[in-house]
Nucleic acid binder design. Structure first.
Lengths: 140, 140, 140, 140
DNA sequence: GTGGTCTAGACCACC
DNA sequence: GTGGTCTAGACCACG
């Protein structure tokens, strides 16, 4: 579980952890049912307080990404979004908008932006497929 | 000046302003000597307290990105070399990746994701064109 | 606003504050619409961290006892319980049970226990009435 | 041994056990040399982990209230002078006051409050009688 | 000045 | 060993 923190970005550390674990799940580095790193060791590895990781895991659980069993650990849940289609689209639009604004600021044209979006989508898709090939016993 | 704030991201608002102005400067969207929007109107446009914008400008000045001339306003200083194209593409890829990960978690398919990206890009493009008609010298 | 804390009781400080403010409201020491002590001064007076008071006030707001306006302060809400009658009775039963168990442990007989309950109820009723007489302008 | 736990009070469970045993001893409900319930059955009865009861007994022993004879069990030590009647009434008044305050917040009238107090007292009395039939030597 | 959030350290309950 | 809670200090946004 590789997590890279940026302490001077102003982004709360616990949110960085949340995003990177969601990324790990999306890219196939984590598999459904697999246990996440325990709070204490992960906190030591990242040099942050245990509460910071605990808060990240609590946020992930409230988002339905993981399941936490007190005294047992935290596990990646099946990837089923509990939201209705329109709501999901709205949530996604936020992330897309952030990328669009970034494209504006960086003066990247529409054609290049869309090509990049497709490329990155394929990259994650490919990562997930490869990762599933390696650990077929862990999937449902 | 196009600035998009995310109040739920956990990133301090004043830092979001700082980052986006630095990005606009770095990408060449803002030019040396060009005046930045005044605090009061920008605060009203972004629906935040004037203190917050003032704090962002103070931070930018302390970083040497802008200079404040009392009674005249804030202006972009020199020494802001625009990023190279590959660097810009790398910065944009981060935002795109975040959207791709979100799409995976929300179980949105590639086709729909790319369609949404194009739609949102067009929406912002339209906004930009409309705002240029009104104040051609001040907008991105 | 007289609040007495017991740091060695094992009862969380923020819950002691919650209970005593509810008591102040019940006994008439606080009136509807009246502002509660601000977080910072109260924390200094009680020699605890501001977050401890903030947590108590957040709990009181979630219970519907007070209303908090960021930047303005916290105010005692009208005393209307949002729960249905059976739920309210259940909540009250918990507090009554605690008293009954205490009576058992202290070997106080039923007759004496009920007499004490009536006495204490009257005492609080009387306090509330007297307090309302003093500050009639603050009531709704 | 009648022990009532409140898992939502925020008071550590092991301290609730400590307090109620000390109270039972102080009020004369427990007598010098009398054996306390064994850890395992008491833990099962209260639906808590055995560690929690063990911790409570360890605390009681360190306070000199009980003494543990390895392999025999835990016994109440001497020096536990029962409280005087007025003290006991004062201790009980605290619990009664908490219930009265709760009644005010839940808008329960005096008549209904006193009826509830009587009902709950009778419920516990009945529990006590039933449990005395089974184990007359061990119950309160 | 107001309330709210993020990070941290210590302790609790459970396995 | 596991996760969860309470208290604290520093910083943020707002008036």
């Amino acid at each position: 579980m590789l997590i890279q923190l940026n302490f001077k970005s102003g982004v709360p550390v616990y949110l960085q952890v949340v995003d990177q674990i969601k990324l790990a799940a999306a890219s196939g580095a984590l598999h459904v049912g697999e246990p996440l790193p325990s709070i204490r060791p992960l906190a030591e590895q990242l040099r942050v307080n245990r509460n910071t990781i605990a808060k990240a895991y609590a946020e992930l659980e409230s988002q339905g990404v993981i399941e936490t069993l007190a005294g047992k650990g935290c596990f990646l849940k099946e990837n089923c979004s509990p939201y209705r289609k329109e709501i999901r689209r709205g949530l996604l639009a936020e992330a897309v908008d952030a990328a669009v604004v970034q494209a504006h600021h960086l003066q990247v044209a529409k054609r290049e932006f869309l090509q990049l979006a497709e490329d990155r989508f394929d990259v994650f898709e490919q990562k997930r497929i490869e990762s599933e090939k390696k650990k077929p016993s862990c999937d449902l």
